[in-house]
Design a protein around this nucleic acid. Structure first.
Lengths: 336, 336
DNA sequence: TTGTACGCGTTATCAC
DNA sequence: GTGATAACGCGTACAA
């Protein structure tokens, strides 16, 4: 945009061919003599041509844009997910316009309409604020990841199974009392199934258990203070019993681990501990923390393959398809 | 794109106005009667008009696109930086097309040319593979963040000052022997100045010191193994001396902390420890780790204000401007 | 194999 | 305040 843009027209004039031939040089090279291809190629170089995909979009109707809205990128899960999604460029060729909507519904609506104005061909939605009923009406294929997905296609971790695996591991480890700590989430979010998986497993094994829902602030000191109180209560209420704690995120598991170690508790003999996400902290903790690993590479790939299918078809499916990815149990030192 | 797109033409026919008036409704509303505005507004709703910015780009020449290439998003620094950059949408209105180039020069070149094809108005470059000499010739304003920046504008942390602060803290803490651990980086990268800052501070205080450059793999187990050996050597070489370790990243500081605690060393009395980045791990570690905090919010804002200035002017400045952001010393329990 | 003519949806420049 | 008309850069029938 600095100087004048070189266009097909310039190349055409310079070479004596028509714009059409220049266009064909790019889109259907075989229909141009190899000699003429060389001539055009030279002209492109000497004139310093730069392709303009914006014009191509207008003519062809294909933008090759996919919109992504993430809640944030300081939580490792979203960062990792976005990283993996961006890497699919090599395979699918779609370009990504990315927004981070910090849990603000109106902002995210603006992001969405901005994306639609740029004629994205598909949307990958990881934020929670806009209900799927609304997303389903936006006119482009949408795939949700780990969010409420009643009316849209989605890719989710098998949260229920993840919780079952985690809880079973604690039971096998000989814990007398099981605790699940989660934030106070909506029943419609996929992560809610972790609570169900925990409860069901405890019940079917006739294990004493608690579910504690907290109002986490995503601030280390505040969340730590809250978890300190929870540990206090547990110590008082169930003294001497071997406890197994399953948290909804590795971050909380790590905070609890730090609290326990500072109090001189033995992990895993007094307390067993398992988190969720396989985020770096789980591996880097003082005692490496067992966790449930979401397979973000597979999830990203499924999301993209699903989305590209939807974009091919053009029509939205009658019933939204939900793909469930089984998580992986990662056993480390807090349970073994 | 699902059905037929509603365009200005449709609105014009429906209302009896011309396309021009419809355009003015959006771009210069005051030049249209409020009654006619109402009529157009109704038509837009009933026909279900959706603006098409791609067409606007072609006509106006302004894409409002900024390209971002990050090396990856699993390192917290990049994720946080991207998060903050994306948030500037509220202030500047630019949309971001994002690529993650995994340290592959040819891939990143393709990303760059793809971005140029979409007529980005500016580029924010956080990857290291493409030399700034090449970036300077790409035809759009470029701002680099924490990378080699000889020929481009940039925003960097004052790495030298950060290292001076960190080293001084260790010295004030009474350490006898100082160690700096870094990866084997190029002298041209901003982070190299951490090494200089460490050395200069040690020399001016006449402190015994070592600089150890490692070949880190970004794998916990491998890096931990390497750091174990380094601690072994230190223990043998300088037994009984109080050691102060300054690492180039919080991740390494945390690994070292874990190693030391497992070996029964006392932190901060036997060893003092300070990292770099103020990443979550520094706060979440068993003993909260002192660190040098890069002010990523300020850096992102400077990068954007700089880039928007460059984009306004249109011309590249004769000499690239380098903005330096002073980092913040964060004192936690590994030094106090 | 190559060229002509038109369309994509908007903005800009004139007129009125 | 409003309307023709020509760009913007490229793709694509259709014709040659």
């Amino acid at each position: 945009m600095t100087k004048k843009n070189v266009t097909y027209n310039d190349i055409a004039k310079y070479t004596g061919f028509s714009k059409t031939t220049v266009s064909r040089y790019f889109n259907n090279p075989n229909s141009v003599t190899s000699e003429n291809r060389a001539i055009i190629s030279d002209a492109l170089n000497t004139l310093g041509y730069r392709e303009n995909k914006v014009a191509r979009i207008l003519a062809s109707g294909k933008t090759e844009f996919i919109g992504i809205i993430v809640p944030n990128l300081y939580l490792h899960f979203y960062a990792k997910m976005l990283d993996t999604l961006l890497s699919t460029y090599e395979k699918y060729g779609y370009k990504f316009i990315v927004f981070a909507g910090n849990d603000n519904k109106d902002e995210e609506r603006r992001y969405l309409s901005e994306l639609l104005a740029y004629k994205i061909e598909g949307l990958i939605m990881m934020s929670h604020t806009i209900p799927s009923s609304e997303l389903a009406r936006c006119g482009v294929p949408v795939v949700g990841i780990e969010r409420e997905d009643e009316n849209i296609c989605s890719v989710n971790t098998d949260n229920y199974m993840g919780a079952v695996q985690a809880t079973s591991l604690l039971i096998r480890g000989g814990c007398d009392h099981l605790i699940h700590i989660n934030s106070d989430i909506d029943e419609k979010t996929p992560a809610y199934r972790r609570i169900r998986g925990f409860r069901d497993t405890c019940v079917s094994h006739r294990k004493e258990h608690d579910v504690t829902l907290c109002n986490f602030k995503n601030s280390y000191s505040e969340d730590r203070a809250e978890l300190e109180q929870i540990i206090d209560r547990l110590e008082k209420k169930y003294p001497g019993r071997k406890k197994g704690i399953f948290t909804s995120s590795d971050t909380y598991a790590n905070i609890i681990l730090n609290i326990l170690l500072r109090r001189g508790k033995a992990v895993p003999s007094d307390y067993m501990l398992i988190g969720f996400d396989n985020s770096p902290i789980s591996e880097e903790a003082m005692i490496p923390i067992s966790t449930i690993g979401q397979q973000s590479d597979i999830m990203a790939d499924e999301a993209m393959s699903m989305l590209s299918e939807l974009m091919e078809k053009g029509s939205t499916p009658a019933a939204p398809e939900h793909r469930i990815i089984t998580p992986i149990l990662i056993r480390r030192e807090t349970t073994d």
